[in-house]
Design a protein around this nucleic acid. Sequence first.
RNA 1: UCCUCAGUAGCUCAAUGGCAGAGCAUCCGGCUGUUAACCGGGGGGUUGUAGGUUCGAGUCCUACCUGAGGAGCCA
Length: 438
Amino acid sequence: MNTKQTYISEIGGHLGEEVAIKGWLYNKRSSGKLGFLEIRDGSGLIQGVVSKKDVSDSTWDASERATQESSIIVRGAPREHPKKPGVYELDVHELEIVQLAHEYPITPKEHGVEFLMDHRHLWLRSRRQQAILRVRHEIIRAVRDFFDDDGFILCDTPIFTPAACEGTTTLFEVDYFEDKAYLTQSGQLYNEATAAAFGKVYCFGPTFRAEKSKTRRHLTEFWMVEPEVAYAKLDDIMTLAERFLSSIVGRVLDRRKEELKQLERDTAQLEKIVPPFPRLQYDDAVKLLQQGHAEGNLESRFEWGGDLGSPDETYLSGLYDKPVMVHRYPAAVKAFYMESDPDRPDLALCVDVLAPEGYGEVIGGGERAASLELLMQRINEHGLPESAFDWYLDLRKYGSVPHAGFGMGIERAVTWICGLEHVRETIPFPRMLYRLKP
RNA sequence: UCCUCAGUAGCUCAAUGGCAGAGCAUCCGGCUGUUAACCGGGGGGUUGUAGGUUCGAGUCCUACCUGAGGAGCCA
């Protein structure tokens, strides 16, 4: 067994050669003296064929004994599949069992969500989960490349924070020596500091929300990428968001065709994601929602002044085949740091980007309050302790400029791009209400 | 926190208030081109928990536990 290891994804370049595949037994079928082994090695899947008359007794015996997910090293010669043109199989010469797997819980039949989530550490080995996580990987690479190539500096923000960033959502509290700390719910306030240092910055890391949300769109721990740009206005970051989303969707279409096919994603819907995206002012969104209600397509009538609910977002996003950017919400329903519209001071210069096909909000952002006076007024209105924000207020004392940014939840983007029902499959080990294991 | 639904073999499910079953997995046997392979056989159960109704409860009632979906809130 000295043959060099070859990855299944590279096997096409080694036809007729003797190669070694180091991996696991995915599934097995046999037809008497002929065995069919589905072998995976992380890079792909290949069928190995073992013929009793052509191999040693020990190899034949190993092929019969090997159980699902046993780790195996297989030596043989890759060749074209006799029935499937363009597909390779491995003519197995030698098979060694590295470890004989115990009875594997995830059998080749259907399973329920709870069972699969309890076995998430093993579920990750399945084809579908691998396809999703490869798309996630591609999206993360695309995100980094987009900002890196556009002159942004990665400036990661702290995970332990002294107080609420936004003072709205519930935070996870942890002991911090003799003090209390909270897990971050956004890097944005710190981004504003680094943006004043570097001009264009982004942070990308885990984010925590202790909300008792129990829906297919929520995790308690998720990854968020947040760009922040000095001297940018609302329109500038809407344009940025538009270019950004188009870029990552295009990248996945370009490089992860196989995975999207495996997931049975309708890629025609993704091909449409190119600038410009529709921009819808909140006032007009309200009119559309009320019209939708009048026509019987929305259960409750939406009144001006409230934040968009989940059914409202679903309805609005269903009106377009591209992400729709809803901007200028009433300031009262948005975070304290939002800049107000000079023409309509009751409106905040903010934007939510709703993904099409009913996927809802994937991006939220806006222009930040630039003046010390407005910010202090807002902090008081929201009943927040001024002392917690002293350093943040400094940013308005020393060279304050208009600036704007947004945040995108990676898992929601992956859910949308993969066309999934639930965010829980888009992160290796999801953390949800009532789900902390494995 | 609220609303709805569901818990039966390791897994996915069936069983009119009347003997608790099938497929997959596992074990044994068969099969030289299989594709969630197939064919024959074996083992495998405190029906989520605690009460109650009944001659008799997996099935009906009450409470609790666990999970799923939705609302609110959010990315």
